[in-house]
Design a protein around this nucleic acid. Structure first.
Lengths: 236, 236
DNA sequence: ACATTTTTTATGTATAGACATTAAGTGATT
DNA sequence: AATCACTTAATGTCTATACATAAAAAATGT
């Protein structure tokens, strides 16, 4: 008797080995359940997970087809910078550079969904690994959504970490860029002439309400973002 | 009667609203099935999908707990550059700069898993949008794994696109970086002084056998990588 | 007090069966 | 040939039930 995992593995193998090619129709759940000697439910779960993984597409009545991918998937996990530094066995240091409540610029205001004259919390902080600057965090926080932020000094904990604890499961949008460093960035991050920065721009919100808008700026020579391993699963 | 999607939505709401906080134990499937008036299977599916999404962690006997996230997830889809250009309604042009079979450098050799004196196919190509260079593709292909590549001129189709069709579902590993441009990159991509490049490094393989190793080099000022929308689902 | 065994319990998986939903295919009608 | 309604086939979901498995908790023995 075959488990859904075994079946999923067999089907995946037939697809990646191109025994079944993009566009090809897979046998119906009915047919496969007979082939594998199990119920349709079991096959259903196997095929559903392959669909979740993007290997096949399923449509009622039309059946299940192997997908012709049009792009390469990549899933990234962006840890809090302290984690990243400590994982490299470096000493972590955090420095708050600026903290004030002010009217954000227009673009940030709309990103956070604030009123015309609503103030937000502005934070600028720097994170070191072994005494070398690794990340500049320039951030606006919506204090209407998070009044506790006004009470927090951020002297001892980075805003990223603080927010991750306080608002654990927001919606997120990221933009990644390679930028020329501004003069300030060059000074703060101790960059060499012409050294670029790797920028992560992040916007988070919960049910339509903006939480934070941040630019995480990294020295190009000291930062890389990598996908854990393979994109195609590798399930469990 | 509630569907697993409704239940999943209700549980998700209770988590994101922090009615259930990180570390909290959720009610058992049994208890929830009574609350929602359905069978345990239905609750199981709802909770399982929340676990897949990373919102909760489940362990036999111990139950289901809300996760305290330690990082921000981001899933990216990297389309073939032609798609990306045409989606912006720009005219696409492709130019093959170099094509030769040669011994790859040591690091590439190990990445592809080649023998000491095994040759590989080297390709260098440039992709334009509206006449402006957008991507430089510098690539090695394992011709032992893909003998057809030797027969392909790559005069009319980019290697990325060709490979996506030929090897649709490989394993993938990505590294993203902000780099200083080399002199050659500066010339080919028509970069300004000090303009950085956004580099995507990709390694693909199937069942241990290396397929390709590539550096996709983009002008920093003309490239951004973005996550589609939210990281936390947004399911179906 | 500590280690070992047993019990218990929540999740994990499978089954057999039912009905729902979607959309492809078919055939009749215009 | 185009449009309509009807049939049908494949996936989608749910139920009720059973047994498996992992690990926490309790009971037992030393």
């Amino acid at each position: 008797m075959r488990s859904y995992k075994e079946i999923r593995g067999i089907l995946q193998e037939r697809i990646t080995s191109q025994q079944w090619q993009p566009g090809d129709l897979l046998p119906s759940e009915q047919a496969l359940s007979e082939e594998f000697g199990c119920t349709r439910s079991t096959v259903n779960r196997a095929m559903r997970e392959l669909a979740d993984a993007g290997l096949v597409e399923r449509r009622r009545k039309a059946g299940t087809r192997v997908v012709q991918p049009k792009s390469h998937p990549a899933t990234i996990s962006i840890p809090v910078i302290r984690q990243e530094i400590e994982n490299k066995d470096q000493s972590y240091k955090y420095l708050l550079l600026e903290r004030l409540e002010a009217l954000p610029p227009e673009d940030v205001r709309t990103q956070l969904g604030l009123e015309q004259n609503e103030k937000a919390l502005f934070l600028k902080s720097l994170h070191y690994g072994d005494g070398i600057p690794q990340q500049l965090d320039v951030r606006w926080i919506n204090i209407s959504a998070l009044p506790e932020a006004s009470q927090e000094s951020f002297a001892d904990i980075g805003p990223n970490e603080w927010l991750l604890q306080r608002v654990p499961h927001p919606n997120i949008e990221h933009v990644f860029r390679a930028d020329k460093a501004t003069a300030e960035e060059q000074r703060l991050l101790q960059l060499q002439e012409c050294e670029p920065v790797f920028t992560i721009e992040r916007r988070t919100w919960i049910s339509g309400q903006g939480i934070t808008y941040v630019r995480l700026v990294h020295p190009g020579s000291r930062y890389r973002m990598a996908t854990r391993s393979s994109a195609i699963p590798t399930f469990n």
